[in-house]
Nucleic acid binder design. Structure first.
Lengths: 213, 213
DNA sequence: GTCTATATTGAGATAGAC
DNA sequence: GTCTATCTCAATATAGAC
């Protein structure tokens, strides 16, 4: 155990990255509250002052950790909203990218779930709700556009939005708790297809999708 | 605060019930690990030995607490599986009853979510996964029957199952974290309707459901 | 500076009177 | 069945030797 041994090959900025990775893993597996600074630095192979140099505090490294995926998430929504393609195509893209971002940050997703659904654990407050809501708004926006373009049939946009969210939610939570049974991106596409066959407008069928059943 | 005052009107078996209610609220709001026996008994207006008399331990009251909704959940699945009605009707019933059971035990659902998605918190192990899976199997069973009866169109039953689960999941999680925006039972029915319009078989339409779009 | 031994605390759990 | 008073134990904090 002792001093934990950073090899000479490690580049300079690596300590920072090691600390982030270490904190992510520990927050994910043991929770924010129960993870100690000592554990984080030990696992990263550095000493306490290094953590405080880069991040000021345990809260600091937590906020830094959560910051990145959320920034990525926001830019993802902006991009997808202003893209080419049918409403359906954009919606599928949006769902798949959200899911991809989720996969790229599984550990952080775990931390987020634990704090969102569990007791606060003394972690500094992050407005997860706001991010979740901006995803909802983005999805709903595309759905409403699809309705205007008569690509989708008319229904309560909120209901449609939640049905779409349901497919992504299920895929994500399966990945979190039961990765071996994960449906993956393919699964999301197939679920959305099932849903679209009900959402798709059925009178003047716009593109080329007949009743293929 | 002091002694916490049990009024004379309280009937005999009430201490037990108060303890259960108290533990449910506290486990839900503060988590299993951080909730102390002292807090539980104080809130219930009794003393420690009363808790140990009825439940043997902190783990005991936790298991007792979780036991009831899960027993109810299992009988619910059995009942619904062996009922009258079309596959769609039974599926909707099943979803609505799961959701109702969830609503009746919101606090416990919160505890369950915290432990399922978060760190174990030292709580005794409960195989939530098994219950979740039996729900999945029940839903899938009805779906497959619906396919055999040509009430639903053919598709991967697992995909359909997850799509259905998604609607319930979304409704439940909304209720947990954002009850003011809850979609409620009506929302589940509407989401399922959206989904069915895609799942419903479209060639020899069995019952009386034409393309009403 | 670091390590080990010793307090202190606060948790879960119990004994025995009533 | 419920109380007061107490026990056990583990985690943390601290003191003092090295």
């Amino acid at each position: 155990m002792a001093k934990a041994v950073r090899k000479r090959g490690d580049s300079a900025g690596d300590a920072r990255g090691s600390l982030l990775a270490s904190a992510a893993k520990l927050f994910a597996s043991r929770g924010y509250a129960t993870t100690t600074v000592r554990e984080i630095v030990e696992r990263a192979g550095v000493t306490k002052p290094v953590l405080y140099y880069y991040f000021r505090s345990k809260e600091g490294i937590y906020l830094e950790l959560m910051g990145e995926p959320f920034r990525k998430f926001e830019s993802l929504l902006r991009e997808t909203a202003s893209e080419e393609g049918t409403a359906k195509e954009r919606l599928v893209q949006m769902c798949l990218r959200v899911y991809e971002t989720f996969l790229e940050h599984l550990d952080l997703a775990r931390v987020m779930y634990a704090i969102y659904y569990g007791p606060p654990q003394g972690a500094p407050h992050i407005d997860f709700e706001a991010y979740h809501r901006s995803l909802q708004e983005a999805v709903r926006g595309v759905l409403e556009e699809g309705m205007r373009l008569r690509e989708f049939r008319r229904a309560d946009p909120a209901d449609m939005m939640w049905a779409v969210m349901g497919t992504v939610t299920v895929a994500m939570e399966l990945e979190l708790c039961n990765p071996s049974r994960s449906v993956g991106k393919g699964g999301i596409e197939r679920m959305l297809d099932l849903l679209f066959e009900g959402i798709a407008f059925r009178e003047g069928i716009p593109k080329g999708k007949g009743t293929k059943g």
